[in-house]
Design a protein around this nucleic acid. Structure first.
Lengths: 63, 63
DNA sequence: ACTTATTGTAATTTATATATTACATAATTG
DNA sequence: CAATTATGTAATATATAAATTACAATAAGT
């Protein structure tokens, strides 16, 4: 989960703060989700996926 | 989200209580997620998807 | 119709996701 | 190098996910 979200964000040339603003959370929240230290809610995951033009599976599904 | 999770659960012939037990939450939590009245965490969504042999996108992604 | 299993749902409590404030340390860029 | 910009992270506070208890209602079986 961690790396793919970060890669997708960087591919869109967004900083953590910019992505946070797009999905209405703080940059700290984005940082911790990327590092795998937060367990985000489904709604937030969906918002992030849409903001990065990816699906849930693209960013958060493994195996 | 709501209908697809319910359909997948019924296809596996599981009651809400049985699915809840598999993923370590109460049947009420399953019920409310199916009805779209809960905003579950990513980890729970992943557990549910695995328990139902589906992916996140199968159950929770729209559009 | 009666009984039991399954689901809906409300009220309250508990656990945890997220915000806030703050400071530190990379990383960029001039 | 100096100065921003971006990121990591800790402590505390707040919002909300999920548990618990309880009761109602519907479905399904006998």
């Amino acid at each position: 989960m961690r790396n793919r979200m970060k890669v997708a964000r960087v591919e869109k040339s967004l900083t953590q703060a910019q992505l946070g603003k797009k999905v209405s959370v703080t940059r700290q929240t984005i940082s911790l989700i990327e590092k795998g230290e937060y367990n985000p809610t489904l709604k937030l995951c969906i918002s992030i996926a849409k903001a990065l033009d990816r699906t849930l599976d693209d960013l958060f599904w493994e195996e």
